[in-house]
Amino acid sequence: MAFSPRTWILLALLLLLAAVPPVADYFGQPFYLDLLRRVMIFAIAAVSLNLILGYGGMVSFGHAAYLGIGAYAVGILAHYGINNGWLQWSLAIVASALVAAAIGSISARTSGIYFIMITLAFTQMLYYLGISLEEYGGDDGMQLKVRSQFSGLIDLNDASAFYYLVLAILAAFLYLSRRLVNSRFGLVLQAARSNEARTRAIGFSPYPYRLAAFIISGAMCGVAGALLVNHTAYLTPEFMNWTRSGELMFMVILGGIATTSGPLLGAAALLLLEDVLQGWSVLPKWLHEHWQLYLGVILVLVVLFARRGLASLLPGNEHHD
């Protein structure tokens, strides 16, 4: 298989990420492991969103819902003393897929602005549901006392083992989404995005393809939710807040919509930028305290002038249109 320059860069990026634990360890700075682990978890969520948003043209403004469902699946089982990770994560995937199927069956019938709004509304519903679930801490959320256990195969309390697991899942999902996009299924999906009428004319009804993509994407994001709750060791309905959905979209577009490496680049750029902007205590207080002002401006500028995202700075071209 001949790799394009972009693929090489992505592989190099993943290798670089793999080198972080020993380097951080050498410099006595394990914090960067946590930071990058969080970046990669959000990158996984962004990869899943990119699948429907980038390739499917379905602008989901409620993708944080599956982050929440995945997290709740793990958290609720743990609450009842079931710490088996295989079980927890399977439930996370199945539950997210089911919720995505329910939401998708209604919303995939709509398009454009209606799709945006209906996905937002469903996520708001789940958010309020989470808040009112008193048994699971309601708005306070609850602690994940024990991280998911994988029969001794991998210990999530070991920071670097957990790190490599997240990295492996990220790599697998990147590969999976790439395969999916280039499969017959992915081609129909992309065709339906660029021209629905023509897709119908050549004999494909877009609805089942869209719904399937929506479900796959939800299930993938559920995995990110299961990882996030293990990362934070804390479960909260705040994972489903609508601003999270906005942030996930921002990651996808900042990185480069409908590109393989985009979600990773976008998640890294946004979360690292946040960390830098708010940690800039060298700046006068009134300056670094208002980092959201700059973030807002950056967001507008990216959309207006750099809409192909960070991935377009990489050599080669992934766009075929």
Binding site: F31, D34, L35, L228, H231, T232, T236, F239, G279
Partner: peptide, 11 residues
Amino acid sequence: KPDVGKQVAEE
């Protein structure tokens, strides 16, 4: 945000 709080604490 709880997860941001945790990250700040880790930092």
